[in-house]
Each structure stands twice: as structure tokens, then as C-alpha cells.
């Protein structure tokens, strides 16, 4: 199967990936203190450069979800929010999550299947593929679930209208459907591949 995004972009991507690897190595040796923030900046910059700002915003939105969880968790455990720590955790989180989005942006699913042919066994490649495919699908479904929640008044139409009472119903009416959906999606996708005989390969 030909790569749907053209050979030229594949080369630029490969170049970018090598640049990142080089930069990580350089910073690790030269300036251990600035290593983390600089690396995250670089990663984000490259991501935006390859995927485009709009797509970045759309894809990276779930990354922001950890913020309320984090702050709430700190409030409950420590009784106050440690902003420096929150920032550090956020940066680490973004750093670990970014490659997933990146990989997904850069490689078509079928390409991915053939890409790691020599390194990973078939099943593992399929699992990797699932992990990448499920994000955009969940994102789309989240839109629908949020729309239904907003219509029913469970969640306000505008973010600035969020009140504490909204958090009472949000777990049951937004998080639960989303969790159910995630499990359902992976289950159905696996079943769909099984139904096409991929489990027998």
C-alpha cells in the first residue's frame, strides 16, 4: 500500500525525528537542568510544524484533561495546590503523551503494520495500531457525548458557565459513557479484525 501522504513528507519526517533524537542527546549532555523544558518546547514545535497548528490543537485537547484531575487531586490530598509541582507534572505528562499523537499523525495505520514488521510480532503491532487509532475515534465520540450532555443541561454550553454542581453529574453522565465507549470501541475493533480473519494470521 502506498503511503497516502507522499514520499517527500516521509523524508522530512524522518529528518525531523533524527533531529529530535540528536537534540535530546545534546541537551542531556550539555545542560541537564534545561533539558526537560527545552525538550518539551522542541517536541511541541516539531509537532506543530509537521501536523499544522489546527490539527495540533484538535489532537492535543485531551492532554489538557489531566489538569482538573491533577489540581483537584492536590487539593484533596494536600489541601492546597502546589503550582510548581503541577507544572512539572504537566510537562512530564505532555512529554510522555506527545509521541503517541505524533506517531499517529505521521503514519497511516496500514503503514504502521508494515513499518515494524521486523521488530515487533504481528499481535503487538495490532495492539499498537489500536492504541493509535482509538484516540481520534474517541475524540469524535466525545464530541457527541458532550453535545448530548449539554443539551440535557448536565454540562454547560460554555466553559465559563461551569459551576461546582456540574461536577456532581459529570462523572456519571460524561466520564462513564466515555469509558464505556472506549472499552466498547476497542472490543468492537478487535472483533471486526477477527471477523476478517486477522486472528488466524
Amino acid at each position: 500500500m502506498s503511503d497516502t501522504r507522499g514520499p517527500a513528507t516521509v523524508w522530512t519526517r524522518t529528518l525531523f525525528l533524527w533531529m529530535v533524537a540528536l537534540a535530546i542527546a545534546l541537551f542531556g549532555v550539555l545542560a541537564p537542568a534545561t533539558w526537560l523544558p527545552l525538550l518539551s518546547l522542541l517536541a511541541t514545535g516539531l509537532f506543530i510544524a509537521t501536523a499544522g497548528p489546527r490539527a495540533t490543537l484538535r489532537d492535543a485537547r485531551p492532554l489538557a484533561w489531566h489538569a482538573p484531575v491533577l489540581l483537584l487531586g492536590m487539593l484533596i490530598v494536600n489541601g492546597r495546590v502546589d503550582w510548581a509541582l503541577a507544572l512539572e507534572i504537566s510537562v512530564r505528562f505532555m512529554l510522555t503523551a506527545m509521541p503517541i499523537f505524533w506517531l499517529h499523525r505521521l503514519t497511516a495505520p496500514t503503514h504502521l503494520l508494515t513499518l515494524f514488521e521486523r521488530v515487533l510480532p504481528f499481535r503487538l503491532r495490532l495492539i499498537l495500531l489500536f492504541a493509535l487509532r482509538i484516540w481520534p475515534l474517541l475524540l469524535r465520540d466525545m464530541r457527541d457525548i458532550l453535545l448530548v450532555a449539554r443539551l440535557s443541561g448536565t454540562w454547560p454550553a460554555r466553559l465559563r458557565d461551569v459551576r461546582p454542581r456540574h461536577f456532581v453529574h459529570a462523572p456519571g453522565r460524561i466520564m462513564m459513557p466515555l469509558g464505556v465507549r472506549a472499552i466498547r470501541l476497542s472490543d468492537d475493533m478487535a472483533r471486526s479484525l477477527e471477523a476478517r480473519g486477522l486472528d488466524q494470521l
Partner: peptide, 16 residues
């Protein structure tokens, strides 16, 4: 809605 694994139509058809 939940059975598609490919990103484009062509890819889905060729996937297996």
C-alpha cells in the same frame, strides 16, 4: 461506526 480501523476508505478496504 465501531468496526472501522483504517484512516481512509481505501486503507480500510486493503487493511486485512
Amino acid at each position: 461506526a465501531t468496526q472501522l480501523v483504517g484512516e481512509t476508505v481505501e486503507e480500510e478496504v486493503a487493511f486485512a
